[in-house]
Design a protein around this nucleic acid. Structure first.
Length: 108
DNA sequence: TATATGACGGACG
DNA sequence: GCGTCCGCCATAT
């Protein structure tokens, strides 16, 4: 049996924080990291989302960068997927730019 | 062991 | 608004 490594634990924390983002709202990598108890590890959040399977039920599309933009290559499949999912939730997206209210995990 | 890369962020110019 | 640098963590080679 293999034990959970520190990285495995962190991945769980991040996914849990992402799952807490309600529909129609978005959060940033940095905020998710803080909500997961990993302040400053925004980059790790990107890594965590990258590990998700395509059939995951975790709302990864609600995570954008601090600039209010989608952090995926413009025009890429993932980019379009994220844009479409956000639009489907009523979130306004223009050329990868999100004009919307950020969801604050604890800070309302 | 060292270096490069990545779904980041903040400071600077 | 945009590009560059540096700091952050984990992984790939």
């Amino acid at each position: 049996m293999s034990e959970a490594t520190p990285t495995d634990i962190r991945l769980q924390m991040v996914w849990q924080a992402v799952q807490a983002i309600p529909p129609g709202r978005v959060s940033t990598y940095g905020d998710v990291a803080r909500a997961a108890g990993l302040p400053g590890l925004a980059r790790f959040v990107g890594y965590a989302l990258r590990q998700l399977a395509q059939d995951t039920r975790i709302p990864w599309h609600r995570v954008i960068n601090s600039q209010g933009r989608i952090s995926l290559p413009p025009g890429s499949e993932g980019f379009q997927e994220q844009s479409q999912r956000l639009l489907a939730e009523g979130v306004t997206v223009n050329q990868g730019r999100i004009a919307l209210r950020r969801f604050r995990h604890d800070f309302g």
